[in-house]
C-alpha cells in the first residue's frame, strides 16, 4: 500500500490587519455596500414556479457538505448562497437545474475567495455527474452576466472580525468565538428565512449567540444588555 500524505499545506488565509480593523470607515463602507447584495425570500412567490424553500434547503445542505469535505474557507458557503439567492430572485430556474446552479455558485465563490478554487470536475463528481462538467462554464457565464458581475458580495463573515475587534476578548477566546460565530453564520445561510437579513445583522446575532453560548458574561465579560447596546450602535440596527 502506498503511503500518501494527502493533507494540503495550510493555505494562505485571513489575517487581521489592525489598519483595517481600527479604521471605522472600513466598517462604514461594508455597511454601506451590504444593502446592494441583500435579497429577500419572496422570490419563491414572485419569481420561481418550481423551486420551494425545502428544495433550496436541500441544495444548501449539499453545498455546505461539499464545503466541509473540501475544507473550504468559511466565507465560501455564505457567499455561494448569496449568489444563488440573488440569481433566484431574478431568474426562474427549473428544479432539475437547481443543483447545477448551486454548483456554479460554489465554483464562483471559491474562485473569488480561495487561493485554489474547486475544480469543475470535482464539483461535478459531487453531484454524481448530474451537473455535467461540460455545462459548467456556460452556466458560470450566465450567472455572472445576469448578476452583472456583482459577485464579490459582502458576507456576514466580513463583519465578525470588525465586531470582535471592538470587544475585550483575549486571543484564545476570540479564536473560539470566531469559530462559533462562523458556524452560526453557515447555519443561517442554509435557511431561506434568513436571507432577508443584512449580513451585518446575521453577523451581530451570530457573535451574540456565540458569546452567550460560552457564557461570556459570567466569565467576566459584558452583560448581555451591554453587548446588545454595543452591537446595535455599531451596526445601526434597532434592538
Amino acid at each position: 500500500m502506498d503511503l500518501l500524505c494527502t493533507e494540503r499545506a495550510a493555505d494562505c488565509s485571513a489575517y487581521s490587519d489592525p489598519m483595517l480593523l481600527d479604521d471605522p470607515r472600513v466598517l462604514k463602507n461594508l455597511l454601506k455596500t451590504e444593502e446592494i447584495y441583500t435579497t429577500n425570500s419572496s422570490y419563491f412567490q414572485n419569481v420561481q414556479t418550481e423551486i420551494t424553500p425545502e428544495m433550496r434547503k436541500i441544495v444548501a445542505e449539499w453545498m455546505l457538505e461539499v464545503c466541509e469535505e473540501e475544507r473550504c474557507q468559511d466565507e465560501v458557503f455564505p457567499l455561494a448562497m448569496n449568489i444563488m439567492d440573488r440569481y433566484l430572485s431574478l431568474v426562474n430556474v427549473k428544479k432539475t437545474h437547481l443543483q447545477m446552479l448551486g454548483t456554479v455558485c460554489l465554483l464562483l465563490a471559491t474562485k473569488l475567495r480561495q487561493p485554489n478554487p474547486l475544480m469543475s470536475m470535482l464539483l461535478s463528481s459531487y453531484t454524481d455527474y448530474s451537473a455535467p462538467v461540460e455545462d459548467i462554464p456556460g452556466w458560470e457565464l450566465m450567472v455572472a452576466c445576469r448578476l452583472k458581475w456583482d459577485l464579490a458580495a459582502v458576507t456576514p463573515i466580513d463583519f465578525v472580525g470588525h465586531i470582535l475587534h471592538r470587544l475585550p476578548l483575549d486571543s484564545e477566546l476570540r479564536a473560539m468565538v470566531t469559530r462559533h460565530a462562523h458556524t452560526f453564520i453557515s447555519l443561517a445561510a442554509r435557511e431561506s428565512k434568513f436571507c432577508m437579513f443584512t449580513p451585518s445583522i446575521i453577523a451581530g446575532a451570530s457573535v451574540a449567540s456565540a458569546l452567550n453560548g460560552i457564557r461570556w458574561s459570567s466569565r467576566g465579560g459584558w452583560p448581555l444588555s451591554r453587548l446588545m447596546d454595543m452591537l446595535s450602535r455599531l451596526l445601526f440596527v434597532e434592538k
Binding site: 488565509s13 455596500t33 480561495q114 459582502v154
Partner: peptide
C-alpha cells in the same frame, strides 16, 4: 474599501 477583505486570496 471592502476589497481589502479579499486581499488574502
Amino acid at each position: 474599501s471592502k476589497y481589502c477583505s479579499f486581499r488574502e486570496y
